[in-house]
């Protein structure tokens, strides 16, 4: 029997002798190899209608899985930066190339998760500081870049939580 010690919210914890480190984030328990290979990615959407942004790793590099690995995405967090009369309509996707930050056009090879590109995979709040969490169980293939896009003029910070693995 192994103890799993978890912190509240985004926190994690280390147990004593015989215990295992874990991190509970947005309902998902990362443990073992999934915790060792956990990647927290971030990006930013400006107040432009219709823009596309890559997710970046902790070194400031547009993220693509290393080696021949894939990235297993478990959740996204959205934090709204401004207050205005509408919501942010978010789509998530991947492509062969990185669009950088707030590109005005989608990469030619873009592949959307879910229903497509209408911009309402998840809508966020209308006030600065509003937060939303989208739970998923999706895969970013090797050689691809993870991308967020919106079709409305909200600015926001976004986070992706997942881990790399060989399959």
């Amino acid at each position: 029997m192994t103890d799993i010690v978890t912190g509240g919210g985004g926190g994690g914890g280390a147990g004593g002798v015989g215990s295992t480190r874990s991190l509970t984030k947005n309902g998902y328990v990362f443990i073992g190899d999934q915790l060792t290979n956990l990647k927290t990615l971030t990006t930013y959407m400006s107040s432009a209608v219709n823009n596309w942004s890559s997710f970046y790793d902790d070194t400031g590099t547009a993220y693509t899985p290393s080696g021949s690995n894939i990235y297993n995405i478990k959740s996204f967090e959205i934090n709204v930066g401004n207050t205005w009369g509408g919501t942010m309509n978010l789509d998530l996707s991947y492509a062969d190339t990185s669009p950088g930050l707030n590109s005005g056009s989608a990469p030619s090879t873009i592949q959307y998760y879910g229903h497509g590109s209408a911009g309402i995979l998840r809508s966020t709040g209308v006030n600065a500081g509003d937060e939303a969490v989208l739970k998923v169980n999706w895969t970013l293939p090797n050689g691809k870049y993870l991308i967020a896009s919106d079709n409305i003029a909200t600015n926001a910070a976004l986070f992706a939580y997942g881990y790399e693995s060989s399959s």
Partner: peptide, 8 residues
């Protein structure tokens, strides 16, 4: 030891 995911 097991991984879990709480949704709802």
């Amino acid at each position: 030891m097991s991984r879990t995911y709480v949704i709802g």
